[in-house]
């Protein structure tokens, strides 16, 4: 039986990679939606992601709420934090700045400001250490597979939720009335405004969905790991950059594919390769893809400006 433990080990790594990729998918979808639709590269996305995990921790540690209500409240909180940035900053920048490039720059800096505020709230309230919701809110059960490999019910939940969210977002953008408005705004905000699309409402709802997706990812990760800290948000943000570039900004399918690809590559490097090069994978991918095929490796942009 010499091969069995190795096979089990590999299966375990694959499961880890898929779970990691699912969290990345949820995280990157929101970032991609905001950039693809509104040209906002929201650097507060990582902070919002952690903020949602913090909210769940805060809401559940006294036993005030159970898992599902806490998840919903945290997602709404994350969405609201992102909408706050939209209403307080991005909206003004979009309408006041004639120069698109300068608007992008200012939104970037405003979102950095937002990230700093959110990070500060979380680290002040948690004493700047790792935090996580109590294990009692979600009864983790592990199912044994072959060899040493196993998968927990929360991990299954993460994968299922990520797939559902990706399919749902894809359908929302393609099919729904609201989704058509989003694509119209992405294509040409001025004209779609003239044609009666309420651009400011589309922007607010898009940012809410983006924030809520980050929140969903943040809560699921917090429940799965039960140890989160502020610095993690930035790691996810940097990896998500690579996902957007590899998958193509604004492409749901591209983002999903890229998220799992990068998750598998990073997991493999950590498990079998030169561990300390792990962070380099994302950065190298960004550089290579931008050099060779700036529009992304996979799907053509679906709701991004041509």
């Amino acid at each position: 039986m010499p091969g069995a433990p190795a096979a089990g080990e590999m299966l375990q790594q694959l499961i880890n990679a898929i779970v990691f990729g699912s969290v990345l998918t949820l995280f990157a979808l929101g970032l991609s939606l905001a950039w693809g639709t509104l040209d906002v590269l929201n650097l507060a996305h990582g902070a919002v992601f952690i903020f949602a995990g913090y909210l769940t921790y805060e809401l559940t540690r006294q036993g005030a709420l159970s898992f599902v209500p806490a998840l919903i409240v945290s997602m709404v909180g994350a969405g609201a934090a992102t909408v706050a940035l939209e209403v307080l900053a991005f909206r003004f920048i979009r309408t006041r700045f004639a120069n698109k490039r300068q608007a992008e720059l200012s939104m970037l800096v405003a979102s950095i400001g937002g990230a700093i505020i959110i990070d500060q709230v979380v680290s002040n309230e948690t004493g700047a250490t790792t935090f996580g919701p109590p294990s009692s809110i979600f009864k983790v059960r592990e199912y044994h597979l072959t060899g040493s490999a196993g998968i927990t019910n929360i991990q299954i939940l993460i994968v299922v939720v990520a797939v559902l969210a990706a399919v749902g977002l894809d359908q929302w953008v393609r099919r729904s009335r609201q989704g058509r408005a989003v694509r119209a705004v992405a294509y040409d905000p001025v004209t779609s405004g003239l044609l009666g699309v309420n651009v400011s409402f589309v922007a607010i709802s898009t940012m809410f969905v983006a924030g809520a997706l980050a929140g969903l990812a943040g809560v699921l990760l917090a429940v799965n790991l039960r140890a989160e800290e502020v610095a993690v948000g930035q790691d996810y943000l940097l990896t998500a950059f690579a996902i957007l570039i590899v998958g193509g900004v604004g492409s749901v399918r591209g983002a999903v594919l890229a998220a799992y690809l990068i998750a598998i590559a990073e997991t493999a490097v950590v498990a079998y390769g030169p561990t300390q090069w792990r962070d380099g994978i994302a950065f190298l991918l960004i550089l290579l893809v931008l050099l060779v095929r700036p529009q992304g490796l996979f799907a053509k942009a679906q709701f991004q400006r041509a």
Binding site: Q276, G280, A282, F283, L290
Partner: peptide
């Protein structure tokens, strides 16, 4: 010369990736 085709946020991300790659190389 390598990044000559890139503009705006794409150029920003490429150069951020370059910066962080320098850090990874230095670490290794």
């Amino acid at each position: 010369v390598l990044l000559v085709r890139l503009r705006d946020l794409y150029l920003a991300l490429a150069t951020v990736a370059f910066d962080l790659m320098v850090g990874v190389v230095a670490l290794n």
